[in-house]
Design a protein around this nucleic acid. Structure first.
Lengths: 163, 163
DNA sequence: TAGTTTAACACAATATTTTGTGCTTTGCAA
DNA sequence: TTGCAAAGCACAAAATATTGTGTTAAACTA
């Protein structure tokens, strides 16, 4: 394990403890060369499950990835971790209920979009821009316009309702 | 290390190799109970440095976080990993050149925005929506309008230049 | 500011991992 | 379909990590 301070390849473990909550092993290491200390974490590699993408290919499914995507979309937004966890659990349940051994990525995307739309509209737009792969700025406009016309026909553009 | 298949706490290492590229140790483990195998990765904990936020508080700085933020903004965009790495290196260099022992988060945000603006405009808008904490949908409009008026005065809204 | 929780630190006996070498399998590309 | 690269597999000798116990320092909260 390379030392982050001096770059030396040599370091040794001076303490090692299990972190139950995150299923990890935390190690405290000391660089042989410069003597500085740092921590490392050992974690399980993400497990593969099957998601069928639009082009027919299969890919690993992980609820953590879904959660990460949602958390990104909600970054600095007034959405609590608890709300996210609730949504993630709901999605996981929906996924397992729907699926035999596979589920389409389209379906998963819809679950997430549906949930986010209820939770926070900025997060919803952000997620859509990634999920639907907006190609340029005009796609943002188009999406915003059609969203406001369909889902929130009475919203005034300039209103800033959230503090 | 808990087995991801049967949940048992007992597993043993059957192989262990360094992964030079990512500065990690990859271990192959076998569950004592069910005998199934899985991989784990040990990585260095992110290192703390000092960033001064707008409200005056100090926070850990990590170039990895910057990179992660950029990668999020570039998700599913035609921006190569190499381009991102170049930008990240440039930012890291700028940060270290600017800084005594601290740097303002504003400054870092500007470095990133400057770089992304050159690289990809959709990524740029996404990053801005997080960095500048867009409050609602109208903020998107306002930002897009002022961006197009200042940076790209001749761009037509409906043009879809990228494939 | 006292009380509490978490991280760092130390140490030693025991047990496990590391590492070189090399063969096999699988996935991907030519 | 052939060939290469990466991952999995195996083994054994040597080296290192693990884990209980306990102390101290730091951060957080009531």
């Amino acid at each position: 394990m390379k030392c982050i301070y001096c770059g030396s390849e040599e370091s040794k473990v001076i303490d090692s403890r299990a972190v139950e909550e995150t299923n990890a092993i935390k190690r405290r290491r000391e660089c042989i060369k410069c003597g500085k200390r740092f921590n490392t974490y050992e974690k399980v590699e993400v497990v593969p499950m099957l998601v069928v993408k639009n082009d027919g290919t299969r890919q690993a499914f992980s609820i953590d990835k879904i959660k990460a995507g949602i958390m990104r979309a909600c970054e600095k937004r007034p959405v609590s971790m608890q709300e996210i966890d609730t949504l993630v659990n709901e999605i996981e349940r929906k996924v397992y209920n729907t699926m035999q051994e596979e589920i389409s990525s389209k379906k998963i995307g819809e679950f997430v979009m549906d949930g986010l739309k209820q939770l926070d509209e900025v997060s919803y737009v952000r997620f859509a821009s990634v999920y639907k792969q907006f190609k340029d700025i005009s796609t943002f406009y188009d999406f915003l316009l059609s969203y406001e016309q369909s889902a929130r026909p009475k919203t005034k553009r300039k209103s800033k309702t959230q503090k």
